[in-house]
Write a protein that binds this DNA or RNA. Structure first.
Lengths: 154, 154
DNA sequence: GACATATATTTGCATTGACAAATATTGTAT
DNA sequence: ATACAATATTTGTCAATGCAAATATATGTC
């Protein structure tokens, strides 16, 4: 009764993801930001003016962690918080001009990494892989909603 | 010039990986261990007596972090370090009987998560996905060996 | 065999991260 | 209007993380 790591999906997923993340962390470092910061910037570039909760879900970052990342980006004037949009509890996060500019300088690098990761993949294969990753995510989403798992204490 | 997150591989990869990781973290917590601890245990169960360096590479955990995770597991007597195997610099990490037993109690749960993640996938699709993830990892490996990337300061 | 270089692991230290509690605001029921 | 639950964000606190330096051993050179 042994788990074959080399054929175990969560392992392969984590391994591939970590590999890209470590590599890209080194790359964005040259622009003076961390990987989580990059994720926030590109998520805002993709969808401007999100609220903290949305942004946390989109980036897979816990909101309490996100608060501090946003603090850091705000201190560097790459983004700004805007309060009071009907609901005064919420905050809208916006890119500043320089935040937008920095993000757009990094995007080509990000695309390059994707290209490298997918080298040897046909366009069809790449599309298929992405689709499967979306299905994976959706499957786990459903799990969260139903099966809140409990230990087998027996 | 905008990066479409919903079709950007590193994003999809991170999102799917994080989702499984968060969910499984909650699950193993009931057994009194963290996700990184689980990764170490299952990596040892898969290949007993690894050295720190190997184990770090296999689990995608930095060795300095790994040292402390191994400390924690050793304190709970789930694993043990054995020194001096020809090369006295190195350490071999072994599961104890109770470490093995704990790991084997969790393996079915781990397999369940994989099954859930892959629900709706045919066996062929699942095999294809895993194969693609291996190719992805190998592609990034080659990048590390060649392209040590520098900022475009221009 | 002493000396420089390489490899394996651990430790120091500052940063990051996550859970839980606190704060602020909104919506709802009475 | 008041009280109570729900939602959005931030803060407190402490453990986890990762880089760089330190330590220990091994290997190669002269």
């Amino acid at each position: 009764m042994r788990l074959d790591l080399g054929d175990y999906l969560p392992y392969l997923l984590n391994r591939a993801g970590t590999k890209i993340a470590v590599s890209f962390t080194a790359a964005v470092r040259q622009y003076g930001i961390t990987l989580p910061m990059w994720r926030v910037l590109v998520a805002l570039h993709y969808d401007e003016g999100q609220r903290m909760g949305q942004l946390g879900r989109l980036t897979s970052i816990d909101v309490s962690t996100l608060t501090r990342i946003v603090d850091g980006l705000e201190n560097r004037e790459l983004i700004e918080r805007r309060r009071g949009d009907g609901d005064a509890r919420s905050v809208r996060v916006h890119l500043t001009a320089s935040g937008r500019s920095l993000t757009e300088r990094i995007i080509p690098l990000a695309e390059h990494y994707e290209t490298v990761a997918l080298s040897g993949f046909s366009a069809d294969e790449a599309a298929l892989l992405k689709d499967m990753l979306r299905r994976l995510h959706d499957n786990m989403d459903e799990l969260d909603e139903t099966e809140l798992p409990l230990a087998n204490t027996g």
